[in-house]
Nucleic acid binder design. Structure first.
Lengths: 118, 118
DNA sequence: CACATAGGTTACCAAAAGGTAACTAATTGA
DNA sequence: TCAATTAGTTACCTTTTGGTAACCTATGTG
């Protein structure tokens, strides 16, 4: 579905297939474009990471942020939370295959970002 | 710069090179991850588009949104505004080379999004 | 004349986002 | 015993976001 414009007999323009609501780009962005979301996924790329370790790596993000984002990512199937021991409670977060599938986009983004010295 | 963890003699963990502030992924996202930003860039991919035409194509976004995003994109050098005629005022927006360079990421995102039926 | 188009700007308001800091309970280490 | 760690949770409060709708100047159309 591509959107384009049509002009009627009176010269009035009208969009055909407008993005009434989020098109695929928009939907994708809402999935991985939240504040710190991409960074979190990216930091999980090499395997499971524990909550506090993740927080430490994302020094600019508060625990609340990290927690919130992880919950979002879990609820949309990109991340799994695993309790690796109660009593000392220990938890890890890791990417699901779906989560891993997003790494390709993120890596492109990183490349683009770095090559433009953002 | 990669962030990783180090453990000292006392077993205390500390992050080396944490993302204190936006790492490249984060910065990239803040550049093209805003609401409708990606969609706008994407809709300019085939050449200049006029303001109202763009608004029409992004049916879900208000003029205020489109206006705001275009100004952001202009101010960071991804889009240029061109007045193609005063008296009937007519304006077009088009991607700069830098703006075009973002299309690669966005296309990856679109692919990912579509192949996962978001 | 009345209305539509172009390209916006403005004010108003409600909702969402996000930071800070305190607090939880259980456990381990000095 | 004091302090720190783990994984969060909670309350509070300020800022940002974003939607709506009205308004603007100028031109063109029926």
């Amino acid at each position: 579905m591509k959107s384009y414009l049509e002009t009627d007999d009176y010269g009035r323009k009208k969009a055909i297939n407008p993005c009434l609501e989020p098109c695929s780009i928009e939907k994708g962005m809402r999935m991985i474009g939240g504040k710190w979301t991409g960074s979190i996924i990216y930091h999980l790329k090499d395997g499971p990471v524990r909550f506090n370790d993740l927080s430490r790596m994302l020094g600019g993000a508060s625990k609340k942020m990290v927690d919130q984002r992880l919950k979002e990512l879990e609820s949309n199937g990109m991340v799994i939370r695993k309790v690796i021991s109660d009593r000392p409670v220990a938890v890890t977060y890791e990417l699901t295959p779906f989560g891993q599938s997003a790494l390709e986009c993120l890596d492109k983004l990183r490349e683009w970002s770095e090559s433009n010295q953002l």
